[in-house]
């Protein structure tokens, strides 16, 4: 790798996140709700439950069910998406559930269901990460017992350079080796609850990427924690 300093198109340092904003209590009807923003990517999430699980045959007598739904508003991207679920959104919904479940104490809610609805209002890459961050906060805001929060970030490899929190421009990187996108979700204690990868990378560099994610998720965790604390203190 060259030693010269890598210039990101928007002037950020390689390990610098975009500006973040977090807020809870944005949907008055919901039991818990939150907004999370990375730059121009805005996700909102609302939690309903724990509540009775229908249909009955889907009930789990051992633990509560976490049901996640990820959806992009049709106009959140430049090229309009047809409203309704797609293969992509169906997969992200499941990935989100897996990312959150390890920290949610579902064992307390046998036979019941917790609904988590995530909507992307505006997209500039890393939407699933913003969605997971908002969802984790909404669950905490709903007062659902959790062992920890989770925080999610996308690590990118642009040509040979690792960067934190990729935006759309970087996601479409074509020079050199192109772009590799690695969304990662971690607990505040550093356990991975979600990782995906699209592109190509060596094992040692992937280890490096995970270290970068560890550092970035700590920063995100502080933003999430502050928003949650502020909501209690202003009440």
């Amino acid at each position: 790798m060259t030693t010269k300093i890598f210039k990101r198109p928007d002037g950020r340092k390689v390990d610098e996140l975009r500006e973040m904003e977090a807020k809870v209590g944005i949907v008055p009807n919901a039991d818990g709700s939150a907004m999370f923003r990375f730059g121009e990517t805005i996700a909102i999430a609302a939690v309903y439950g724990p509540k009775e699980h229908h249909p009955r045959n889907k009930r789990d007598p051992e633990k509560g069910t976490l049901r996640c739904e990820y959806n992009m508003l049709s106009f959140s991207v430049t090229d309009r998406i047809r409203p309704g679920p797609s293969r992509r959104s169906t997969e992200i919904s499941k990935i989100t559930q897996w990312a959150l479940e390890p920290v949610v104490m579902t064992e307390k809610y046998a036979n019941r269901v917790i609904d988590v609805h995530i909507n992307i209002l505006q997209a500039n890459a890393s939407t699933r990460c913003a969605g997971i961050n908002a969802a984790a906060m909404a669950l905490a805001h709903a007062g659902i017992p959790m062992k920890d929060l989770v925080s999610s970030v996308s690590i990118g490899k642009l040509d040979k350079q690792l960067v934190v929190d990729v935006n759309k421009y970087e996601e479409d990187w074509e020079e050199g080796e192109g772009a590799t996108d690695i969304p990662i979700t971690m607990t505040s204690k550093g356990k991975l609850t979600h990782i995906q990868l699209d592109g190509k990378i060596t094992a040692p560099q992937l280890k490096e990427a995970i270290e970068l994610a560890r550092k970035a998720t700590k920063e995100i965790y502080e933003v999430q924690k502050k928003a949650l604390k502020d909501s209690v203190e202003t009440k």
């Binding site: 008055p28 121009e40 508003l73 049709s74 959140s76 991207v77 309009r80 505006q122 997209a123």
Partner: peptide, 26 residues
């Protein structure tokens, strides 16, 4: 301008009711 990838957008709150509308063209 609540969703900047749209050709136009608006958020309207009437009391606690909230709605977002976005315009796309093709």
């Amino acid at each position: 301008g609540v969703s900047k990838n749209a050709e136009g957008s608006a958020r309207v709150k009437i009391g606690n009711t909230e709605v977002i509308a976005g315009i796309k063209m093709n």
